[in-house]
Computed example of a mutant assay.
Amino acid sequence: MRLVRQIMSLPISLEVPADAADAAERAFAWLREVDRRFSPFRADSEVTRFTPGGPHSEEMREILDLCRTYEHRSGGAFRAWLPGRGFDPSGVVKGWAAQRAADLLRAEGVGEFCLNAGGDVFAAGRTWSVGIRHPDQPMAVCAVLAVRDLAVATSGSYERGEHVIDGRTGRPARELVSLTVVAADLTTADAVSTAAFALGRDGIAWAAAQPGCLVHAVDAGRRVHHSSALGGLLVPPGTMAS
């Protein structure tokens, strides 16, 4: 059973067994709560009302820790605080929230599912085929991965334009058009892919060096780069699983 809901201004799809519909709706409810509480576009959200001194909710403290961790690891290429802008943790919130939704499903006994939150995917219970969108052809993929109990997150400029900012310069990151990270959880995959994209070409090797991460990237010259170990997950053309 495939369910789709519009949350966070994007389609979020969830494939689950038919008897898991109630658990799926609770996962969607959590994602709606995240959108309400942590959207930078809502006047009453925790993000919009954020002050450094707090008080902060437990979830906000988690998000702050993620932002600080990846700002440090990326040498400032990833930043949730940019000059002239308010606090915006969007680069980590979606993956964190989607991973929490996946954890909720597992806690309720849903062992087999595929959650796709606007390109951030967690595939559980069996092998699923996850496509990486072609940066120049919206209806095509440039690679397909066969993953089980893994997360896949992609950062790119082809869907939302130049929205990833290099925090070191304050300018849009333009050296890559797509960077995908495969990891054990979506919190890591999403944060690493966003920070790596901000780093530019150096981000490919940086992401591959992060613990448990595999990388597929397309640079601005349309050259493809990927971790050698990713080859075991790449699906040959014409042999895709479901």
Rank of each mutant, 00 (worst) to 15 (best):
I204D: 03
V177P: 06
A23Y: 06
V34E: 10
R37F: 12
A209Q: 14
R73T: 10
L105Y: 04
D219W: 01
L199T: 02
G111S: 15
S9K: 13
A24K: 02
A241D: 11
M1S: 13
A191K: 00
A24V: 06
A241V: 15
S90Q: 00
A80V: 04
I63Q: 00
A124G: 14
G231Q: 02
A209H: 15
H134R: 08
S178W: 02
L145W: 12
Q6A: 14
P237N: 06
E33K: 15
A205D: 11
S242H: 15
G54L: 06
E25N: 09
A80P: 02
W206R: 04
W128N: 06
S39F: 01
D65N: 11
F38N: 04
F197Y: 07
G125Q: 07
C114M: 15
G167D: 00
Y158T: 05
P236N: 01
H226A: 10
L104R: 09
Q99W: 07
A29G: 04
V47H: 01
L214H: 01
V93R: 12
S155V: 08
E46I: 03
S228Y: 15
A209I: 14
S90D: 06
T194H: 11
L176P: 00
G221I: 06
R5S: 09
E25F: 07
A80Q: 06
Q6K: 15
P135Y: 04
V4Y: 02
G170E: 01
A217Y: 02
S45K: 04
G75L: 08
L82P: 00
T69E: 15
T154E: 01
R79A: 15
G53N: 14
T188N: 03
G125D: 12
R160E: 11
G125M: 10
Q99D: 10
S57C: 09
G231W: 10
E112W: 11
A24F: 02
L14K: 09
D219F: 04
A80D: 01
S9I: 10
S193L: 04
L115G: 12
K94C: 00
P11L: 08
A140V: 13
M139C: 14
R106D: 11
L66N: 08
R100F: 13
F38Q: 02
V92I: 07
G111D: 14
G232L: 12
A20M: 12
L179Q: 05
E59I: 11
F38G: 08
I63Y: 00
L82I: 00
A196M: 03
T48Y: 12
F28S: 10
P211T: 12
A80H: 01
A196T: 04
W30H: 15
